[in-house]
Design a protein around this nucleic acid. Structure first.
Lengths: 115, 115
DNA sequence: GTGGTCCATCGTAGAGGAACGATGAAGTCG
DNA sequence: CGACTTCATCGTTCCTCTACGATGGACCAC
């Protein structure tokens, strides 16, 4: 069951639609917004996020094929996004399946909207 | 000459509410979002933006008093924000009057929302 | 003019980011 | 088992960011 089937492997379960009650202002919110913004502060990482949103199912190293960067560089960018909480990576056999963390994206929108 | 600059006049006139027709996807949008995100990728700069929004009129070096940073450091952060197009600085006598660029903020919201 | 305030810029030191190739761990297939 | 794939991590180089004090320009009051 593991033959290059795109958008069929559900490694990213439908996240529960739970409201985020944290404030959108204050020192903590500032730090949080700065962290999320820093994660998006590179065009390659913006592209990665877009790719993961477009193929809402998760993919692994197809990202490398879509970017003009070395595999190790892409892996670094993925790590930055993961450390910021924007994406998730689940091991699936020999591959790793990345996907968006929808609540982090919502949180980012809330913080930017709160400006 | 410009002798009509009175103290009570906000140096930031109500910007025209002109819609931004540029796309929220594509390579250019990626670069743009990365640039704006990088400008917000530091807590001090997030705080500066909030200060300028709160006092919707413009202020100058009161920002320095609100931050635990040296004047030169704050000036550098202001330059980063200005270069990114997020704020504007108008010289008003011996002071400089900073204020938000509302259309840049709207653009940022559109780009983040377009994710 | 002199003196004082406000602010940008310079110079510098240290920390962190971005890129790559090389290496190796973990897993799959024959 | 052995060969191959996939990906993270290491080590390196170069460049940018962040912070500060010091310097100097522009402006106002006197």
């Amino acid at each position: 069951m593991k033959s290059t089937a795109q958008a069929s492997e559900p490694c990213c379960p439908p996240a529960k639609e739970q409201a985020d009650l944290r404030p959108v202002e204050g020192d903590e919110a500032d730090e949080e917004l700065a962290t999320l913004a820093k994660a998006l502060a590179h065009p390659a990482r913006v592209k990665i996020v877009r790719i993961l949103i477009r193929k809402n199912a998760c993919i692994c190293g197809d990202i490398v094929d879509e970017l003009p960067l070395a595999q190790s560089t892409v892996s670094q960018h993925l790590k930055v996004l993961k450390d910021a909480g924007l994406i998730r990576g689940d091991v699936d056999g020999p591959r790793v399946c990345y996907c968006i963390e929808p609540h982090a994206l919502r949180r980012l929108r809330a913080l930017v909207g709160g400006l």
